[in-house]
Design a protein around this nucleic acid. Sequence first.
DNA 1: TATTTGAACAATTGAGTTATTTGTTCAAAT
DNA 2: ATTTGAACAAATAACTCAATTGTTCAAATA
Lengths: 195, 195
Amino acid sequence: MPTTDKTREILAAALKVFARYGFKKTTMEDVAAEAGMTKSNIYFYVAGKRELYEHAIRNALIQWRDSVAEAISEKEDAVEKFRVMASMSFEYLSHQQDLRSILIMDPGIFTLSHAEDRFYEINQGAMLLIKDILLQGISEGRFYEVDVEHTTEFLFSIYIMFLIKTYVKSEGSSTFRMYEEGTALILRGLCRKDT
Amino acid sequence: MPTTDKTREILAAALKVFARYGFKKTTMEDVAAEAGMTKSNIYFYVAGKRELYEHAIRNALIQWRDSVAEAISEKEDAVEKFRVMASMSFEYLSHQQDLRSILIMDPGIFTLSHAEDRFYEINQGAMLLIKDILLQGISEGRFYEVDVEHTTEFLFSIYIMFLIKTYVKSEGSSTFRMYEEGTALILRGLCRKDT
DNA sequence: TATTTGAACAATTGAGTTATTTGTTCAAAT
DNA sequence: ATTTGAACAAATAACTCAATTGTTCAAATA
């Protein structure tokens, strides 16, 4: 299954239809109609319904991660990078209606368990963004010399937790205040001195 | 339904049987047999199967919260209280086999959503423990003047997240290291100066 | 050759039925 | 005030059957 243009069209169509009907209620004909072809032709590009679904989500998640990575790379300072990462990676979803709908219908996409994580490799990449910022901050003497591996996992877990609270469970707007207060608290715990 | 001795016996029997078979597979006759009476007599004390189940869990959760509260009250210092609360409330479950089994079979008991929380009042009490420690630490000038409400919710959410990761999802022992590293980081973010 | 299609096939699902189990009630007994 | 056995009602499990839908593939098309 090469990532050709046609494949991308199918993935986009699939994301839209899955967002509207959910995995179970979506038929391959729905996807085919949205993509402007017959359902049998879909099988020329993808292996099956479940694979199509996971592939469409995977695609969206990778775009998310990459746009955060790009935003981070525009900053020099480790503290600034941390702030951009925290806000950007959290708010990104509010602009992605389709992915959000899918998340609500399929809460298992975000899990607190590594074993259950269907998108582990992608999340590994996201954790690498955190880890690099920690390493930079430590080597520049701005952060305490924390246990980088465990702190990275800790921060990533909190991030996932907030995504679930905000976009899956749809808690009130107080979640945003909590997120700000929490990241400020943690950044204070990381930094050696206040300037 | 008065909380008489017989009621407590029934709740204890119920917790044990529900822990072994889960809610669905447990029959009222199983509970009755464990409690040494006939199933019709159970209805003299409890309103129904679902109520019995929730009541048994509620009971166990309240004991948990109260024993943490007692441990905290034995410390004077806000920082010490924080440390005791963090470790005690987290490790308590490792000694409660029945409650742990129930938690695994019924993951909805610990939720990241207030709306879905069947034990909200009990958790409100637990959050009050956090809040009081924050207030004490702030008034004594040891903690920064954080937003107490949001920080309390933030800390409690992290706590619930770790309970889920550790006891429901059964992640590896690295979760304990994460918890330690995380609480140390947060405590550093709370405290005005290192001594 | 690379794509696309319609028709056929196989697997899954949903509705409907029945028998059995189990939650709940209650009058009578202790 | 408690406890019980018998009866009833509700939920569940096992099964069937029809319809839907995922998947394959030989033939058509570009």
